[in-house]
Write a protein that binds this DNA or RNA. Structure first.
Lengths: 170, 170
DNA sequence: ACGAGTGGGTTGCAGTTTGCAACCTTCGGT
DNA sequence: ACCGAAGGTTGCAAACTGCAACCCACTCGT
């Protein structure tokens, strides 16, 4: 009855989920992007159980998202730093934060990201077409190639999109 | 020993995590954005246990991300449709997919998003400053107000950023 | 009339994960 | 000698996950 391995899927979302999809992991990553590096700081900020934190940090290191660096000897003390892979996660968290601000709070969002260079609030994370530059939403896009398992469901929608966009069918 | 309620945090990422942070939920949302709507389709595409799927869909409906709609009577049949809140999740998944493509695959990503209007691949999800428009990364931004619990750790980093950006300290 | 198939589930049970609390280790300070 | 800090590990009970079997209301083919 072992847990299914999501990284078996030939899908980037599934692979990413295997790395960051466990409870607390996103929040640890958020704290790391805020600037935290030490075990105790993650622990006191999140109120997470120490064994869980230990486990999650080990997973993040194993997945190459963070590194464990010795910052002092006698006694040995370690801190956790983001790798390039970890820092590259920023747009995902920015998008998630924006979504949470908009849809999970009634009033003002509790805090916001400030661009140092501007000193002003306001970070947006927008999906856009790298070809034409236009902003994209879920309706203006389809997946390709279509996974076999869902072809029969999505095909008609794709056909409709093709007619609308007046492009030759491949 | 009840599970900690992440939506207690005064943080958008934590609130969002309470909605989408459980195993499978992101993949269900991905499938929904691909165009799937029915219980059996999610089930066969993901290979998820039926009780778990049932539970996750119920949670998504409870959180206002999907709605359960009767599409046929005798026998009653239901489908699951994304709400505006659910469709608004697209930039997060686009960002996550982009991250997975870049960092979780060795070679070519298995599939990509195609803009109907262009017929061309390439979706990027980029965080940018809504004030000056420049692209942002983790280093060019800080959180404000700083959570009390982490102030002592992050303060020095923020001071450094302020000096670099040569802005008056608020 | 009967059996098989479809769609949308629920229930039972065993194995896995989570979280609290207590404990460990190595140091530096008093 | 004792305390506190930092970075953990261990033990145990409650909660969650996943497989398989089952349920129900139809429809379709023979």
């Amino acid at each position: 009855m072992t847990r299914m391995d999501l990284s078996q899927f030939d899908c980037s979302v599934a692979r990413a989920t295997e790395v960051i999809g466990e409870r607390w992991t996103l929040l640890i990553l958020r704290d790391a992007l805020y600037g935290l590096t030490r075990f105790v700081d993650f622990q006191t900020d999140l109120g997470i159980a120490r064994n869980i934190l230990s486990n999650r940090l080990r997973q993040l290191v194993a997945h190459g998202v963070m590194t464990r660096q010795l910052y002092q000897e006698q006694p040995d003390r370690y801190e956790y730093l983001l790798t390039d892979k970890g820092r590259a996660f920023f747009p995902v968290l920015a998008a998630l934060m924006h979504w949470g601000d908009t849809w999970a709070f009634d009033g003002e969002p509790p805090r916001s990201l400030v661009h140092h260079a501007c000193g002003r609030e306001g970070v947006q994370s927008v999906a856009s077409c790298s070809n034409c530059g236009r902003e994209l939403d879920a309706e203006s896009v389809h997946i390709d190639p279509l996974p076999e398992t869902i072809r029969h469901r999505v095909d008609e929608a794709v056909e409709r999109w093709r007619r609308l966009s007046a492009l030759p069918t491949k």
